[in-house]
Nucleic acid binder design. Structure first.
Lengths: 348, 348
DNA sequence: CTGAAAGCGCTAACAC
DNA sequence: GTGTTAGCGCTTTCAG
């Protein structure tokens, strides 16, 4: 029997043999390259279809010296910021015909070193790193020296750049917008809960807070500030701590939505009514910010844009159209007013 | 000069040449296989280190006929169930020395067909599919016929299995637990909001609801039930609709946490106080369920276990230690009581 | 214990 | 238009 119909493991060779042409012709037809007569084209296509042929992307990657994937490093996908970031990155990667390999550094015993070591430049052509304030810069630089494209996204300080191409946003402006909103509402007793050390990843957001406080001639007090970690639970604890110590605060600026949602619960559990007794504002605008009651007033940062531009930059880097000192800026942050902020009780 | 120190693109050949051995010896040393003298071993290791050699996983995959990745298909990573699932799947995959390629079917124009076509059996050895009630069974079966391992996880009906190996949990028992909790609290006027058609993915959960209602001799009324989609917003809308139409309900069973959180907001926006005026219970126990105020009473399903067992089953399948009819069961669901449920006002 | 040869599936370069 | 040759980086034979 001269007709082999369906071959679950058909290779390009099988198709070529069956169609009576060379493998190169099959390759050309399938990739739409080279010149092939319409007749042969049809025959090859039919044969491939009949055999159920599908190209082996691994083989293609090896010979082309180019992987069909990109690596994405983030701290933990269960932090609601990252699914939004990862989705946008994924879609942009797809536009460049690439799939995404994800590493949750928080849960890798080695913080992702093994992932980078194995994947970067081998399974994946480049690495997109979502900044979490605790990046293994040494390793990233080492990869870059090897010629492997590395991009850091969500870089918070446009004026203080890393030695790696990055996508940045103006975190200080975001902090300012948030606190200006409080000041304009009439608040003077404003506390701050920062999801990092003072000079950590939220340092820019904190600087924005300080700037506005100074401009408003409000004397800052360390007693009104808390530095903690960037999680719901840490926000909750810091909120309880701060509100217990400083019950006269009328508003709190939180450096990030996730801890801010924790602060909202802390306020609620302490008997505060938000926004009547206490206003809360933060930064990011993750999906849960609009699902809480009251909704969280926050300064939206361009999350999806940072993911997309991160992937694009990676692709540009691979094409030699960007360099190690390329910096990509994103749209300015914008205030999103919801129910968690109002004028202080005294002024009403 | 006989010493080439660091070579960013070193291949196994370079290491071999430099160490004065054959590539095979290098391979053996690096993989810890074959017999190599301690002396040669050390020399090879040193050379590899010095050159900064890292094996090319793509080449290895090609020759071994085995990919270092697994594919994960889910509807959308921004639905908080999936990050929890994906993280557990990722960690389990890592235990089997594999990375994860993720596809968000909701956002692929073709619902993931292209992903499967490209990735399954080529970039990835197998596919783990997180059931969302709208699976492309034809395609999955076609992959399976090709010999590509496919596993469906989060299968809701242990008594009604697909023709594909799956990881299942007892969704009907989960529905029962939830509604029994309401009945035990003294509720009789109980509504239901289901995040799928009646016989859709939440059909098992709904059947559990019906069973308990019948056992409690509560006459079910279609007017107290709503069938909608599985999202926060759809839950919100259905909640508003149901509560407006049936203001005398004292409790609502929602088939899933995400729409249940929407229902909580709907109740709040309509002036209901939860749980004083209205109890709400649902199923899943996603992270946001414990972060809402009040906390959401829910029936926890073994999310991480289903992800882990899904990956393990995939690996077993690849090793020929499982078949196309293998079914893996998971731990029974358990009730988690939080603040969203209480005895009805009348009985207090 | 170590090496040489063959080949995984595919494509780039060049011949016919 | 189409075929041939070579080789991507690695591992699996099977000799030595």
């Amino acid at each position: 029997m001269s007709s082999k119909p369906f071959n679950p493991a058909a290779t390009i060779k099988d198709v070529a043999a069956q169609a009576g042409v060379s493998v190169m012709t099959v390759s050309n037809v399938l990739r739409g390259r080279g010149r092939v007569s319409e007749e042969t084209r049809k025959r090859v296509l039919e044969t491939a279809e009949r055999q159920g042929y599908r190209p082996n992307l691994t083989a293609r990657a090896l010979v082309e010296g180019k992987a069909p994937t990109l690596a994405l490093m983030l701290s933990c996908i269960t932090n609601p910021f990252y699914p939004e970031f990862a989705l946008a990155a994924n879609l942009e990667a797809l536009r460049h015909e690439r799939h995404l390999l994800v590493c949750n550094t928080d849960h890798e015993p080695d913080g992702g070193s093994g992932f980078l070591e194995q994947v970067a430049g081998s399974l994946s052509d480049g690495v997109l790193v979502a900044n979490n304030g605790d990046l293994p810069m040494d390793e990233l630089l080492r990869l870059q020296e090897r010629g492997i494209p590395v991009v850091i996204s969500v870089w918070e300080l446009p004026d203080d750049l890393p030695d790696i191409p990055c996508v940045t946003f103006d975190s200080k402006a975001a902090g300012k917008l948030a606190v200006e909103h409080l000041v304009e509402l009439g608040h003077r007793r404003i506390g701050a809960i920062i999801g990092s050390p003072k000079h950590g990843i939220h340092g820019g957001r904190y600087a924005g807070f300080r700037d506005v406080m100074r401009a408003a001639k409000i004397k800052p007090s360390a007693a009104d500030e808390r530095f903690t970690k960037d999680s719901f639970e840490h926000g909750y604890e810091a909120g309880k701590d701060l509100l217990s110590a400083r019950p006269d605060l009328t508003a709190i600026f939180v450096s990030n939505d996730l801890p801010a949602l924790g602060v909202m619960n802390a306020a609620s559990d302490l008997g505060y009514s938000v926004p009547d007794d206490l206003s809360i504002v933060s930064i990011t605008d993750i999906i849960p910010a609009r699902q809480s009651r009251p909704g969280l007033t926050t300064v939206a940062i361009p999350t999806a844009e940072m993911a997309e531009k991160g992937v694009s930059l990676l692709v540009e880097l691979m094409a030699g159209r960007a360099t190690e000192s390329t910096v990509v800026h994103t749209s300015p942050p914008t205030l999103v007013v919801r129910g968690s902020t109002a004028a202080p009780a005294a002024s009403r």
